[in-house]
Design a protein around this nucleic acid. Structure first.
Length: 198
DNA sequence: GGTAGGATGGGCT
DNA sequence: GCCCATCCTACCC
């Protein structure tokens, strides 16, 4: 990782201890750092609690969902479709379920390594999907439950010092069968790393 | 440009 | 046994 990134502010736990929709929107433009790789968040989805039929947490507290009910600012990493892993960041105060699925990143550091892990030659194919970005950044279920608010840990989320205003588009979440009309997906307008433009 | 179908295994009823 | 917060390939305009 480039040395400058190591000096960027790590988002504190208070950032995550808010309603999931607010946390989702505000995570856009922030940077996920894992090992020597880093990527700017360009697409997210909020998942709520018991009322949100599409959310894993809607089934209640189980071995898998206990991280979502735990303290905010931790990673929730789950296995899906027998093949892929997806990264969420836990929101809401402890005891209140809610999380944000990271759906796409714009590679920022360790770009060649990320592309090599993915086996792609175009940067836009590197992390433009929730299953793609975990491969590119080597994030696995080993990181499930990891605290992302502590500088010095391998997995952190940081604020760029020169963050600019963002044009955000919201719409329905992708790949779900329940609560399909809730506009809980947020992404950066015109960004080529978004998984599904429009 | 587009999409239909298959890969593949864990979680939960 | 069924469902899945996905991705890639083959195939078809």
């Amino acid at each position: 990782m480039e040395e400058k990134i190591r000096n960027w502010e790590v988002l504190p736990r208070e950032f995550y201890a808010r309603p999931s929709v607010e946390v989702a929107r505000d995570l856009l433009g922030k940077v996920i750092v894992h090992g020597s790789t880093a990527g700017r968040i360009v697409e997210v989805e909020a998942y709520l609690g018991l009322k949100d039929g599409a959310a894993h947490a809607s089934r209640g507290l189980t071995p898998r969902t206990k991280v979502i009910f735990g303290p905010p600012g931790h990673a929730y990493v789950y296995f899906i479709y027998g093949m892929y892993e997806c990264l969420d960041l836990v929101a809401e105060p402890e005891g209140s379920p809610g999380c944000v699925l990271i759906r796409a990143l714009e590679p920022v550091a360790g770009i060649k390594l990320m592309m090599r892990r993915r086996g792609v030659i175009r940067i836009e194919e590197t992390a433009s999907g929730p299953g793609k970005l975990t491969v590119a950044m080597a994030i696995t279920r080993k990181q499930n439950g990891a605290d992302v608010t502590i500088a010095g840990r391998p997995l952190t989320v940081r604020r760029m010092p020169d963050e600019e205003p963002l044009r955000v588009i919201s719409g329905p979440r992708v790949g779900i069968r329940k609560a399909v009309d809730w506009p809980l997906r947020f992404y950066l307008a015109g960004n080529p790393h978004v998984s599904r433009p429009r």
